[in-house]
Design a protein around this nucleic acid. Sequence first.
DNA 1: TCTAAATGCTATGCACGCAA
DNA 2: TTGCGTGCATAGCATTTAGA
Length: 221
Amino acid sequence: YFSLLQSIALGKRRLGEIVKATGISQPVANKYSGVLSDLDIIEREIPVTEEKPLKSKKGLYRFKDEFIQFWFKFVFPRRGQLEMGQTDKALEEIKAELPVYLSFIYEKIAAQIIRQRADLFFEFEKLGRWWDKNQEIDLVGLNRKQNSLLLGEVKWSRNPVGVGIFNELKRKAQLVSWGDSKTRVYYVLFSRSGFTPEMIKLARYEKISLYKGDRICLEGR
DNA sequence: TCTAAATGCTATGCACGCAA
DNA sequence: TTGCGTGCATAGCATTTAGA
């Protein structure tokens, strides 16, 4: 169980990758991941557009419990270091890796914010992420009855988000085979460091919702 | 020493994607 | 459309481990 959790913490999220990294057999890895899911320690994430989530081959395992994730990602690999009292060195290393870790946490927070403020968009049947082999979209919400789709990008960067990120999101949106020509599409951008003036101007024109940190700075309606 | 739980293996089946 | 490879889930059984 430890090696499985550690491999997920190191970014091995597909069952096949976990099997390769840990050396445990695939049925065992599957069984363990089921147990850990039942315990609410990890969860299997599926692209929101998947019609049959239980049968999906695109599932990715991730930690559900952030505290355990932090421990396996940062503390467990440095047990020796910490036991020898090299806490400053360990802290420096952890600080260096923290931005990548926080970007995942920020994605989760962004999803929570969107869920809480569904009144600004539509009632979500599903809200999560979407990905295929090479592309991913951080936030995807949908409602079949209302024929509505929400697409969002979440950026934990020191630089303000510019028009390029939005254009890239629009390009990836073409790859999400969901809805039809009448589908109402909502765009949302989350940024730690705000947005460029060009992006704010475009957001006003195209009715894109913008969030700086956890606060809305432009309502896209 | 016995028993139950945990762990690990093989075999098998299903669904999906892709190429012919 | 079909066949094949890949990824995943499950069943069933054997072995190991821990506790009484």
